[in-house]
């Protein structure tokens, strides 16, 4: 039902766009009509697929490694007072640096290939995962922690058996945000320096005034982004089925 409504809205916008181009007679190298984008999408599917494959791989690797490293960092922060005192301020300060600014540096360090884009994605999503998970563990129901203490639990087992499961819904929120931002990291990386990928293709098309190709690449990216979010969201819901998930009644 939600998908249907989204589709209707989308179709409406496409019609509006087509009408706008037809009425104003805008040149296709500024704003191509949707019909022209669709033609390009169909005719150049092989090239788009070639580049999309790379970007998808970058995003998937970036998301996986970003979530793992973010979760690990949150665990270290939770387990060690030393890390909280020395690492946490640095971590927060590091978020003040715009990711765009260090993208050229990453290309310099990690090359034009896959690695620099994966690292870029990791940097973009790392913090949202780490902070969501860490917050969740800190907000563990105090009653459960009291209970664990009276049961003579070690701090390590309390962390692993009480705090971590209690924080899983928060971690899931962090991962959902990460799924949205991971593509941004990969695309920024490709803009700065790449020889393949959708971001690279968009940049090239823009330079050659092939705006229809740019839109086609954008569309592929958007479809993949939505599919990624839906998959991650569905997976998390299934894995953490015990968490209350109440949608407002009027929805």
């Amino acid at each position: 039902m939600i998908a249907l409504r989204a589709l209707v809205t989308f179709a409406g916008l496409v019609v509006l766009w087509q009408a706008l181009v037809m009425l104003t007679g805008m040149p296709h190298y500024l704003l191509p009509a949707p019909s022209r984008v669709a033609e390009t999408l169909w005719a150049r599917a092989d090239i788009l697929w070639e580049h999309a494959r790379i970007t998808v791989l970058e995003i998937a690797l970036g998301l996986l490694l970003g979530v793992l490293s973010g979760a690990f960092c949150a665990l270290v922060l939770m387990a060690s007072r030393l890390a909280r005192r020395w690492l946490l301020p640095v971590l927060i300060a590091s978020q003040a640096i715009p990711t765009f600014a260090i993208a050229p540096l990453l290309v310099l360090w990690f090359g034009y290939g896959l690695l620099s884009k994966v690292v870029m994605s990791i940097i973009v999503i790392f913090f949202s995962v780490a902070s969501a998970f860490y917050d969740g563990m800190r907000r563990t129901e105090p009653g459960w922690l009291d209970l664990a203490r009276t049961m003579s639990a070690s701090p390590w087992r309390t962390l692993w058996l009480v705090r971590v499961p209690a924080a899983l819904p928060s971690l899931a929120t962090g991962i959902r945000v990460a799924a949205v931002f991971a593509p941004i990291g990969a695309i920024i990386g490709e803009w700065v320096g790449a020889s393949r990928g959708l971001g690279y293709l968009m940049l090239q098309s823009n330079a050659r005034m092939q705006i229809d190709m740019l839109f086609a690449a954008l569309l592929v990216l958007a479809v993949f982004g939505v599919a990624l979010y839906a998959t991650v969201d569905g997976l998390l819901r299934r894995l953490i089925s015990w968490a209350p998930d109440a949608v407002p009644d009027d929805d």
Partner: peptide, 24 residues
Amino acid sequence: GQTEPLMPWLSARGNVAIGARLRG
């Protein structure tokens, strides 16, 4: 305790036996 006593991710059995797991 006073607050919601059970851990929602564990079954009834898991909740009852949580002490054994916490003590290893």
